[in-house]
Simulated assay, not measured.
Amino acid sequence: MTQGTVSRIAIPVGDPNGIGPEIALKTVAAYAGRDDVALTLFGPANVLRDTADMLGLGEALAVASVEPSAPVLQDGFRPGEINAQAGAAAVDAATRAIEATQRGRFDAVVAAPHHETAIAQAGIVFSGYPSLVARVCGQPEDSVFLLLIGGGLRIVHVTLHESVQHALGRLSPELVADAARAGVRTLARLGIDTPRIALMGINPHAGEGGLFGTEDGAITEPAAAQLRAEGFDLTGPAGGDMLLASRAHDLYVAIFHDQGHIPIKLLSPQRASAISIGADVLLSSVGHGSAMDIAGKGVASARAMIETVAMLGHVTAPATTKGKAP
């Protein structure tokens, strides 16, 4: 961020019945009084008001910029409960924030966690924020990928919320290369211009020369050759265990959901950032769920969201958070 400018961040509050409204308000309180970050909340006004009252953060809400989403939740607002109204509200808030960012009103979106079952109950086809960003931005869904950042690792996923069988059916050298390219472009926006890339294999040991399967020879090896021809500094394809153990790379390319999620969640279970990359709009959610078991209790930590705002806003995160359980 250029000195003297303000980073404008849109914050959709996720599932209203989860911890999203709570951590969004705690994040606003943490950045209160700062002149380098401007935060705008997207979510049902009654949910934000009631949550602010519960947390004793009415003052933070009063000075925050709020763009209520529609419809306002009434019967559907029950913290800890999974229901269709809350699922629809989460998608509505995120959609409005993405649209506003695409129009240039904001620099990035930091989204609170959604609940996929609640969204499914609302009859909405949804497989995560990357697919939503793609649809709102008018791009193919397979052009937007998930980049997880946490525990000193940055891992971009070629496939995400789908069965392994389905993922294998649509893998191609170009899809793998596109994920790596999207990761490189995003790292440049985060200040890393020439990253060292590690490409994980599809099979153990990346197939061990065909001993453990031929998929790597047909997919990841041609992708690696293409990326090297384009000038990228790339290792692999190789076994993900070996690559991660080396900790020698700036960007790791995982083929499947669990290849990338397990190491991040192990090293940074509550403080990871999940960035949807490949579209004009940069959206990051937090690397944890909606925590229905503690929703409405005022004990959720907002640290992951606070640090994600700092990362996308190119600013320093507050050392402490106002309110309970930062």
Rank of each mutant, 00 (worst) to 15 (best):
G33K: 07
M242L: 11
D258T: 11
L73H: 08
A60W: 03
T51L: 07
A32R: 13
P326S: 14
F42A: 01
G150S: 12
L267C: 09
P79A: 06
H314K: 10
R49D: 01
A111T: 14
I192F: 02
A64G: 07
A319C: 04
D36C: 11
F42Y: 15
S268G: 14
D258F: 10
G239S: 07
G210S: 12
P195I: 11
D53G: 08
S246H: 04
A167I: 03
A112Y: 08
L227A: 12
V91Q: 11
P173L: 01
K297A: 11
I19T: 03
I149M: 11
G14C: 01
S127D: 04
I9Y: 05
G289E: 01
Q165G: 12
L48R: 07
D178Q: 12
R8V: 05
A122E: 06
I255R: 03
R185N: 08
T320W: 08
E307M: 13
D35A: 15
A238N: 03
D75S: 15
A248M: 02
Y252Q: 03
P12G: 00
T27V: 10
S273G: 15
G43E: 06
D75T: 05
T159C: 00
P237C: 04
G150T: 14
R170G: 00
T308P: 03
T117S: 14
I19W: 05
P222T: 07
M200I: 01
P68G: 10
P326E: 12
G236A: 08
F126S: 10
I306M: 14
K26C: 05
V176R: 00
V158P: 02
M54R: 14
H205I: 10
F77E: 09
A218H: 11
H249L: 00
T51C: 13
V63P: 02
R303C: 11
A111S: 15
A134C: 12
V6R: 06
T220I: 06
V125N: 06
E215L: 10
A245F: 00
D216L: 13
S276I: 15
K324E: 15
G33L: 09
R8K: 14
A319V: 14
A112K: 01
R96C: 00
F145I: 12
V91D: 06
R196H: 01
Q121Y: 05
V156A: 15
H249K: 03
V144G: 13
P326D: 13
Q85V: 05
P204H: 08
R271F: 00
A317F: 13
T51Q: 14
Q3T: 12
E22N: 05
N17K: 03
R189H: 09
I11K: 00
E116M: 11
A182F: 00
A118T: 08
V164I: 15
D178T: 06
I98P: 07
V299C: 13
S65N: 14
T308L: 13
L244A: 04
E307Y: 05
I275P: 14
G201S: 08
G191P: 13
A45L: 07
G43L: 02
E59C: 06
L153E: 03
A188Q: 12
A122K: 04
G20E: 09
A97I: 05
G152W: 15
I23S: 07
G296M: 08
D250C: 13
D36P: 11
A94F: 06
P130T: 09
D15Q: 01
S143Y: 05
P237L: 04
F232E: 04
L153Y: 05
T308D: 06
G128D: 04
I11D: 04
T2G: 03
